[in-house]
Simulated assay, not measured.
Amino acid sequence: MTRGTDSDGTLPSRLHPSLVRDHKFPSARFGRRGLDPQEVRRFQHRVALEMATLHQEVARLTDENTRVKRVLRDWRSGRANQRQS
Rank of each mutant, 00 (worst) to 15 (best):
H55Q: 14
L11T: 03
V40I: 07
G4M: 02
R70S: 15
P17A: 08
T62D: 12
R41W: 09
K24R: 15
S18Q: 10
L61F: 06
R3A: 09
Q82L: 14
Q38E: 09
G31T: 05
L11N: 01
G78Y: 05
A80P: 03
R79Y: 15
R60I: 02
S27D: 13
Q84M: 13
N65R: 13
H55V: 06
Q82F: 12
A28I: 00
E50D: 14
S77C: 12
H55P: 02
F43A: 01
G4R: 00
A80W: 08
R33T: 14
R29A: 12
D74T: 10
R76M: 10
P17N: 09
W75T: 14
H23F: 15
H45G: 07
A80G: 14
T5G: 05
R70D: 15
R70A: 15
D63Q: 15
H23L: 07
R67N: 10
K69G: 07
V58F: 05
E64I: 06
K69D: 12
S7G: 11
R60H: 09
D6H: 08
G78E: 10
T53Y: 09
P37Y: 02
R70Y: 11
L61M: 10
P26W: 01
Q56I: 01
S85D: 11
T66Y: 09
S27C: 05
E64A: 11
S18I: 04
T10A: 10
Q84H: 15
S85V: 05
T53W: 06
R3S: 08
S27Y: 02
L72P: 04
R42P: 02
Q56F: 05
D36Y: 00
K69S: 11
F25I: 02
R83N: 15
L35R: 00
G34W: 01
Q56P: 01
D74H: 11
E50R: 04
A28C: 07
T5Y: 02
D63S: 15
H55N: 13
S77R: 12
A48G: 09
V40H: 00
S7R: 12
L19A: 05
K24D: 13
L15P: 00
L15Q: 01
R14P: 03
M1A: 07
H16S: 14
D74I: 03
R67C: 06
R83V: 12
V40K: 00
E57M: 06
P37F: 01
L35A: 09
T2E: 12
Q56D: 11
M1C: 06
R33G: 15
D36W: 00
V71C: 11
H45C: 04
W75D: 14
P17F: 04
S77N: 14
A28T: 01
L72G: 10
T53E: 07
A80V: 08
E64V: 06
F30V: 12
R32W: 06
M1E: 06
Q56E: 12
V68P: 02
P17K: 04
H45V: 01
G34D: 07
